[in-house]
């Protein structure tokens, strides 16, 4: 009996989530204080790429699929920016254990993205990120238009397809 109640609870919760999805009207990023790799404070509401789309990716140094995603994007990033003007903003959710590894790692890998640190997970919680990698696509107005979790081989294509879709809409 207890199991049935539990399953029903889960079911009702998920229905709630689906209906909540329709409530989402304002798609701008919440304003949360984060840090740059040098330790300077920054605010997520200041993310800017002119009128061009942004890929906002939450990741961590200890997350294998995240590293795969970043490596895959890094290999085609020059082509992406040239074609679409898109910018990748990568927010590390590494906590005090691994946060000191972030700067050496991204330099060592020669990744050329815009990096931020969210050591206390404030931005992660404000964006309701549960697991990493979790990637959001923002249009030229800075509105969230899509989000993706997990990463499978070739998953970076989904991101650029979405970006192309935004650009064709804008034009």
């Amino acid at each position: 009996m207890k199991n049935i109640i539990a399953l029903c609870t889960a079911f009702i919760l998920s229905i709630g989530l689906i209906s909540a999805q329709e409530l989402q009207s304002n798609k701008k990023l919440p304003a949360v204080t984060i840090k740059t790799l040098e330790g300077k404070t920054a605010n997520s509401s200041d993310f800017n790429n002119g009128e061009k789309p942004i890929i906002l990716s939450f990741w961590a140094t200890w997350c294998r699929p995240c590293l795969k995603e970043m490596t895959a994007i890094s290999e085609v990033y020059d082509d992406w920016t040239e074609e679409t003007g898109v910018k990748l903003i990568a927010v590390s959710i590494d906590d005090s254990k691994t946060v000191r590894n972030v700067a050496p790692l991204v330099s060592g890998k020669s990744w050329n993205f815009e990096f931020y640190l969210d050591e206390n997970g404030d931005f992660k919680r404000a964006m309701s990120v549960n697991t990493v990698p979790h990637t959001f696509i923002l249009n030229g107005k800075g509105e969230i238009v899509a989000q993706f979790t997990a990463f499978g081989e070739g998953g970076e294509k989904k991101l650029i397809e979405k970006v192309r879709e935004i650009i064709s809409k804008d034009n």
Binding site: K2, N3, I5, A6, L7, T9, A10, L13, G16, L17, A20, N26, P30, R125, A126, S128, N130
Partner: peptide, 30 residues
């Protein structure tokens, strides 16, 4: 003894201007 066990949670965050509010429902059966 229960044969089937379940952990579940749902987070809700609401942001409007300078206000934000949220909650997490958690369920363990068991």
């Amino acid at each position: 003894p229960e044969k089937l066990l379940l952990n579940a949670f749902a987070n809700f965050n609401y942001v409007k201007g300078p206000f934000s509010a949220g909650l997490r429902f958690e369920s363990y059966q068991n």
